[in-house]
Design a protein around this nucleic acid. Structure first.
Length: 141
DNA sequence: GCCAACGTTGGC
DNA sequence: GCCAACGTTGGC
């Protein structure tokens, strides 16, 4: 199972907002970047990703799960833009900040750390485990 | 609020 | 098909 990371500005759409959508979740719309779209096309239902708050907090706050494969983004005027549907699964116990991640040698190759603006990223299994460990695990939403 | 990094657009 | 101009993202 592949792992992912989704960036969002919390004052636009936060992890709390995704939790509020419940099991029906929400489409991850608004992505207008080919790399990010291609990452979403590669996702399978049941795969999980970190939910990262950019700008405010700059930290991984929770875990979400893909509940529908890529489909045209209803907010786009061109069907070439696709998105998956996500639901919230769990909080992390302690949010892992960008600074924390930068300070961790095992995360030096992580896309997030390497100052990429990519809003939907793959996360390696090793990186996934390191972040979970740094977060002290998860707790129920 | 600034600006660096990066992706996209459009003229040639 | 190249590349300069421009717009956007996101850390600081």
């Amino acid at each position: 199972m592949a792992h992912w990371l989704f960036k969002s500005e919390p004052d636009v759409f936060s992890f709390d907002d995704l939790i509020a959508k419940g099991d029906k979740g929400e489409q991850w719309d608004g992505v207008r970047n080919y790399q990010a779209r291609n990452n979403m096309r590669a996702m399978k239902v049941g795969e999980r990703g970190f939910f990262y708050h950019s700008n405010i907090g700059k930290e991984v706050v929770g875990i979400c799960e893909v509940i529908a494969p890529a489909h045209p983004d209803s907010t786009a005027d061109d069907p070439k833009w696709e998105c998956v549907d996500l639901k919230a699964v769990a909080w992390v116990v302690n949010p892992v900040t960008l600074d924390d991640a930068k300070a961790e040698p095992r995360l030096k190759d992580m896309i997030l750390v390497n100052n990429s603006r990519l809003s939907v990223q793959p996360v390696s299994d090793a990186e996934w485990q390191v972040i979970l460990e740094m977060a002290g695990g998860t707790r129920a939403i």
